[in-house]
Design a protein around this nucleic acid. Structure first.
Lengths: 339, 339
DNA sequence: TTGTATGCGTTATCAC
DNA sequence: GTGATAACGCATACAA
């Protein structure tokens, strides 16, 4: 069934049906009613594909993420899906699995599908350059969380430096004088910034960070667990352990438990992201919260803006994270934050 | 740029370009080479929308799930995305948020987009009936995990009865003589089956289940935590607690920790699903593992089969879960399962 | 094996 | 305000 069927039943032209149903253009109240009743009676449902071909708008945006399994990414996807839904936009989800070539394929595939925009969390600060740049020439692209070095494309994320300052200040206030760090060795923007600014703030706060107390692996629970075991083997523990992701911190917490290290008494631990489980592990995790709803909202807004604006100046939006203090860095409260 | 551009550059007709690039039809090696080189030189990338309109195949399937935040669902989505990707199919993801009306909207929207198939985890065993049935009239639909009562549509999931038998047998072998249960009060297929078969097997195994020891809430960590507190308030603890989902069990574990209840010494706890965290919490969780890869694989296979088959007889595929025994139901090993 | 010509279902551009 | 009609980019029936 097509609009032609509806047109015949309503006694109007296909043009009028299109105008009435899509809401674009002017239709008299009587004809509009005739069309809608005919459409309902027939159970007509409209062909988005044909509409997309003719109007060159799909009302769909593609999203490419490096990892579905990561709870932080899942939360972000969820928020993006929600915002898109409110705008009547469909989400096309792709998983690059940390693989730049797979990321490239996903981008070209989504562009072939004529998505109206692209939300990308790039895999690598350099390897992702060409593919994302190419994509951005055919459709609006906004980077979320991670960003690519030297690429003049929109980005929404958090201020990683601020986040690290919040963490180091907190440790300082607790009297911490030495600390270890577990991060990612992936070549992505936030991994580097988190490490660099951690070191910088620690130095200026008089917190000692031994070279052998810096561990770089992956954003995974296993990495946290393994790194902590290495930390133990390397000699006396520092006062605190700063993790560049909650999943890492959770792994470290696990290892502390099995190695009978008491947190925060023997070792203070902090995370990053504030995934749901940071508030559910034992002890609950001190971390910095990423404003995911805001990131999702701005990402979609930027996409929509760059669709309409003629010459769109690129936007770099670094939102502020917030410190969430829990038991992994302080004595347990009776009534804690259970949000 | 269109195939026409490529055709002109290659000195052939648009039909030949179409045949050469899509792989359908017969093209001589020389012309094929001429076309591909022209396409590459121009950086041509086809228009999936036009192709879909003409061929009425989108190479996309829609997936509607009740909850993105649930790690079990995320894992399932990941596996489905992987299988689809291997088949060159794009995933269109929708979140029904446990809301039947939102589920209906998602289904009609995906059908308007002319997806080649639909993978649905229905929200409600009865309320979802009409929308899913309607959808199945225009496109192949396969239900995953949950299924709708009395709907003659394909389904892939696990045998929940078998799962409960595995759990109850395990408890029996541990000498458990009384047990509590936390499940979901949602009207979905597996919630009911899990409760019913738990009670049946428990009875025949001589395990006592007091009425006030059956808690029905949601599949969430909070539900597990709250229910456990109620369990404590209700008097002496039973020997074991059976949870209908890992997320519930994790919440119960949390509450045990804060209430100084030792697991498994004071209370044996079992979960359901084997999400990643079941192997990362303390103590690690005994649970039944769902074969997600197999579920995803079969779901896509069934979809593809029902696209080609003329009269497709509906498939009900109940895969076997496996019991995974960990420390929440036994004394801790030094070297446990770290898979 | 290749080219020509038509149509997929909708929206945009015109006249009226 | 409404209708006739062309066009979106591609795949395919048919002719050659």
């Amino acid at each position: 069934m097509t609009i032609k069927t509806v047109a015949e039943h309503a006694g109007v032209s296909t043009a009028t049906v299109s105008r009435a149903l899509s809401g674009t253009g002017i239709v008299s109240p009587e004809l509009r009613r005739a069309v809608t009743t005919a459409a309902e009676k027939l159970g007509y449902s409209g062909n988005t594909v044909a509409s997309a071909l003719r109007s060159s708008r799909t009302n769909a945006v593609g999203m490419v993420i490096p990892e579905i399994a990561n709870p932080f990414m899942t939360d972000l996807v969820q928020e993006v899906e929600e915002v898109l839904h409110l705008n009547g936009i469909q989400l096309l989800l792709c998983n690059s699995r940390q693989d730049p070539s797979r990321e490239r394929d996903a981008l070209t595939s989504l562009i072939a599908r004529r998505v109206d925009g692209l939300i990308v969390c790039p895999v690598d600060a350099t390897s992702s350059f060409a593919a994302v740049q190419a994509a951005s020439r055919s459709v609006p692209v906004v980077q979320v969380d991670q960003r690519i070095d030297g690429l003049d494309a929109d980005w929404v994320g958090i201020n990683d430096e601020t986040a690290m300052r919040l963490i180091v200040d907190h440790l300082s206030s607790l009297g911490v004088s030495s600390a270890a760090f577990i991060g990612s060795k992936e070549n992505d923007s936030s991994s580097r910034i988190r490490l660099d600014s951690f070191l910088a703030y620690a130095t200026s706060a008089g917190i000692e960070v031994a070279k052998e107390h810096i561990f770089l692996g992956r954003y995974s629970v296993v990495c946290g667990r393994e790194s902590l075991k290495q930390l133990i083997d390397s000699g006396p523990l520092p006062d605190a352990l700063v993790c560049a992701a909650d999943v890492i911190a959770v792994g470290a917490l696990q290892a502390c438990h099995s190695e009978k290290i008491s947190v925060p008494k023997d070792l203070i631990i902090t995370g990053f992201d504030d995934i749901e489980f940071a508030n559910l592990c034992t002890p609950r995790l001190t971390t910095v919260r990423q404003p995911l709803k805001a990131i999702a909202k701005h990402a979609v807004d930027i996409l929509r803006a760059s669709q309409t604006e003629q010459d769109h100046a690129s936007v770099q939006l670094a939102l502020s994270p917030t410190l969430v203090v829990r038991e992994s860095s302080k004595a347990a409260d009776i009534e804690g934050d259970t949000a």
